[in-house]
Design a protein around this nucleic acid. Structure first.
Lengths: 196, 196
DNA sequence: CGCATAATTGAACGACCGCTCAATAATTAT
DNA sequence: ATAATTATTGAGCGGTCGTTCAATTATGCG
């Protein structure tokens, strides 16, 4: 019938995710993206609609990767809490040097965008809720197996964890001392509300 | 000798601060600023050099206002810790609705900019250090008057406080429940490391 | 092979970007 | 009043923005 040979969509989205994550939505131009993913404007617009459309796909891609990361941590640790701690270490310490930005792409986006892009904000918020929800599930597991008390609900603890991660990731952009960061992460889990 | 009648520089900087704070550095165009501060491009460039120059002045203006706010809280409370708590409440809860952005302009800027604007990043970091330093001084006061233990140094506690404020302000952009935020702030000060 | 169909290209559009500067307006000293 | 000096104006520069679309290229089917 017709031509079907195409670019590798997942690879293109990965590259776009990294660029958007690094530079932010506004500072990333379509020409930047064209260079990065090696596609001509017509092809990009045919595949993703417009700049917003491509950005939306990268937000979902980033979120899926984050949740996959949590799952991976769960597989690698017997204890749900140890898994969460490993995830936080990865996000705060490793991600600082390896990832395109030291920050979470979702919180960075929420910080950057205004009501001019309300639809993107709402989508970003919903993705962030998805991640917090995943935290809550893991925390609930920890509570069920007695690793954690029920003084705070799993949702409250998940929110608390989000606050800590966001705060620590921003802090890590200013203070680069890995040992200090590791200690601060450790203390998140060894004190209230994670340790009664 | 010559013409001296001029615009009100402080008022202009205040307006520019609010716009930059709200929209971020990249999304704020010189034409946006021209409209906001009611000056023509030539006058702006004569007074501030360029877009970066004006932004630098707003960063200093924002920082000075923040430190003045801390001082004001100290004046209004007998206890240094109560003053800090009041400051945090203002930053996280009141600022969410009243200010141009729910976030700290400095952390927002550090999050947004890349090495393309390294000079602005460094300046922003130094302003943020200035604020953390002010926290440390207040905390040292609390330690001297026995309100707080010396288990953690005032610098460590100041860093911890920065992490909490940053995390909470970002969280407040997603979760708008003021009572919940007030409780989370309360718990910052009633548990480790602020309460041994 | 040749045709129908779809993917891909890249020049180009109007709008906006940061910024400049000759012209003009306003002020003060003489 | 006049001259000297400086603040202010705003049209407009070269460049980049997000986006479009006619033309071209590549593919699968009969």
């Amino acid at each position: 019938m017709a031509k079907t040979a195409k670019f590798d969509r997942q690879q293109v989205i990965d590259l776009a995710t990294n660029l958007y994550w690094q530079k932010g939505f506004h500072a990333t131009s379509m020409r930047n993206l064209q260079d990065e993913i090696d596609m001509r404007p017509g092809s990009i617009y045919a595949a993703f609609g417009n700049k917003d459309g491509l950005f939306k796909e990268t937000l979902k891609n980033y979120t899926d990767a984050g949740i996959a990361q949590i799952t991976k941590c769960l597989d690698m640790h017997d204890s749900p809490l140890e898994a969460l701690k490993a995830f936080v270490r990865f996000q705060v310490i490793d991600s600082k040097e390896a990832a395109p930005s030291g920050l979470c792409m979702l919180t960075k986006t929420i910080g950057e965008l205004t009501s001019d892009n309300q639809e993107l904000i709402e989508l970003t918020k919903s993705h962030l809720s998805q991640i917090t929800g995943t935290f809550a599930k893991v925390i609930a597991q920890a509570q069920e197996c007695g690793e954690l008390s029920n003084v705070k609900s799993c949702d409250e603890l998940a929110n608390y964890l989000q606050v800590q991660i966001t705060g620590l990731r921003t802090f890590s952009k200013v203070n680069l001392n890995n040992e200090q960061l590791a200690l601060m992460i450790e203390e998140v889990f060894t004190h209230y509300p994670f340790n009664v």
